[in-house]
Simulated assay, not measured.
Amino acid sequence: MTPISLTRLDLTSDPAARRVVKDETVTVEFAREAGSLMSLEGPNRYGPGDALITGATGERWVVSRDRFDAKYVAHDGVAHGDAGAYRNVPVAVLAKQMQEAFSIARSEAGDVLHGEADDWVMQYAPGDYGVVKAARFAKVYKAL
């Protein structure tokens, strides 16, 4: 079966969407140069200074530096901007569990991520998306 391609998704009016919040301490390194990291959901390109994150369940992904600074706080004595432990700022986001395989761009003209049936499509803000595997979602997200 061919995965569905999600475009211009707006979960704010979708009755199947849930408001959830992430609760996780992650390990962070900051990129010294541009590159690409392969997450479970697809490629994540990054630039110098972007955050290269390893989650509590071992998954890896990238967060641009401006988004990282707004979404994570240093933890366990780490100075903000240094490599080490960070906690996410608890912010409600929209999530929908998909019933079939799908793909979605992280942002306009961004990297394309892929999910399987039962994975979750995330909407962090208008035009800002993610994909979370079902097992990881169950471990680090809580319904509001």
Rank of each mutant, 00 (worst) to 15 (best):
T2A: 14
T2N: 14
I4Q: 08
S5M: 05
S5F: 04
S5N: 11
L6F: 06
L6N: 07
L6M: 06
T7P: 00
R8F: 05
R8V: 00
R8G: 15
L9S: 06
L9C: 04
S13F: 09
S13L: 08
D14F: 05
D14M: 02
A16N: 12
A17D: 09
R18Q: 15
R19C: 06
R19W: 13
V20N: 05
V21G: 05
D23C: 01
T25K: 05
T27I: 04
V28T: 07
E29I: 01
E29K: 11
E29N: 14
A34N: 13
G35W: 02
S39W: 04
L40S: 12
E41F: 02
G42A: 07
G42P: 02
P43H: 09
N44K: 04
N44H: 15
N44G: 01
R45N: 10
G47D: 15
P48F: 00
P48L: 00
G49F: 02
G49W: 09
D50L: 06
A51M: 07
T54V: 08
T54Q: 12
G55K: 06
G55T: 08
A56E: 14
T57R: 11
E59M: 03
V63S: 08
S64H: 12
S64P: 14
S64L: 11
F68E: 06
D69I: 06
K71Y: 13
K71E: 15
V73N: 08
V73T: 11
A74S: 13
H75A: 14
D76R: 07
D76I: 01
V78N: 07
A79E: 13
A79R: 13
G81H: 03
A83E: 10
G84R: 00
A85Y: 10
Y86K: 00
Y86Q: 02
R87P: 04
V89D: 09
P90G: 02
V91D: 12
V91G: 02
A92Q: 13
V93L: 13
A95L: 05
K96Q: 11
K96R: 11
Q97T: 09
M98V: 12
M98P: 08
M98L: 15
Q99N: 14
F102E: 08
S103P: 01
R106S: 13
S107N: 11
A109S: 12
D111L: 04
V112Q: 05
L113M: 09
L113H: 02
L113K: 01
E116V: 00
A117E: 07
D118T: 12
M122L: 15
P126V: 03
Y129M: 04
Y129C: 06
G130Q: 03
V132N: 02
K133A: 15
K133E: 14
A134G: 09
A135K: 06
F137W: 01
F137H: 04
V140W: 06
Y141I: 10
A143V: 15
L144T: 08
L144G: 08
